[in-house]
Design a binder for these strands. Structure first.
Lengths: 146, 146
DNA sequence: CGCACACCTGAACAGTCTTTCAGATGTAAA
DNA sequence: TTTACATCTGAAAGACTGTTCAGGTGTGCG
């Protein structure tokens, strides 16, 4: 085989994973060959394209799932599902460094998965709402039926 | 100054994001200082620790969410939620290269989010089950109430 | 058979994520 | 105020992700 070494490509990303920007959600108006030569099923493409979720929505949703896509963060959440805990208790419970926990909690906070309150020198975190619990159940069910 | 100075840690990753391996889920038996000096709330830690999800489960679930953590894959899924489509139609519908689509479909397949069948030269993909739809709804609801 | 086409796969690059280290901020107690 | 402590934040290193390019596999047609 050979190497690729050609185009720059230069993708762009943001909070989690940004898509191109414009033009990604343009309708298939004039152009729209399925594959360069055979225009496989143009009708299908035309039908489905307007139903494809908006780039913005896709982006926001991807960021949300991204927050759940790390085992450590899931452990943190499962701990918080039980009870309110401060950072250093959390660190001990999931066996991570406190700094790492702090960074990860920021990610969870950014998606409003956890809330927190300060009491004295400690900051107590807890689960923000029960959407997470619901999602957890559905996903667990999905993974069960291997 | 000073800081946490826990341990080397040496993380390991795989399919999506692997956690250490063993030792991450060990109970807080003999050791277990919350923070080196003050053992903040040892009781809480002891209480919560057994409820923290297993490393394996966390890992599998993280991989699942990982598959949903990309805007392009979410777009592909939203297209497939409408109807069965072949790879090159999908590529046209979401405006991606066919190779990229193929790579992404593999990710979705690995989490059994889509299924496929071959017909002649084409391969038709469709949504595997409706857990995805459920999850989508819950997440959408969560994002709505910003 | 041999070509064309749809799709898949591997390697490489560039961008992103997660951890750690070091230091900064905020709060409480001496 | 000064000191100690809990937590946060920024930078850097290393691993991972997603795209593209080039080529490989499988299927149908001439």
């Amino acid at each position: 085989m050979k190497m690729a070494s050609s185009k720059p490509a230069s993708r762009k990303k943001g909070e989690a994973k940004k898509v191109a920007s414009q033009k990604t959600q343009r309708a298939v108006s004039s152009d729209a060959p399925s594959c360069e030569t055979s225009l496989v099923h143009l009708e299908n493409v035309r039908q489905v394209q307007p139903e494809v979720i908006e780039t913005d929505s896709a982006q926001r949703m991807a960021e949300f799932f991204s927050a759940l896509s790390d085992p450590h963060r899931l452990k943190l959440l499962s701990a918080l599902a039980q009870q309110e805990l401060c950072v250093c208790d959390l660190a001990a419970a999931v066996k991570m460094g406190e700094s790492a926990v702090s960074h990860q909690l920021r990610v969870l906070r950014s998606q409003r998965l956890v809330k927190y309150r300060r009491q004295g020198r400690n900051v107590y975190y807890s689960m923000a709402d029960d959407h997470v619990a619901t999602i957890y159940r559905v996903v667990a069910a999905h993974l069960e039926e291997g």
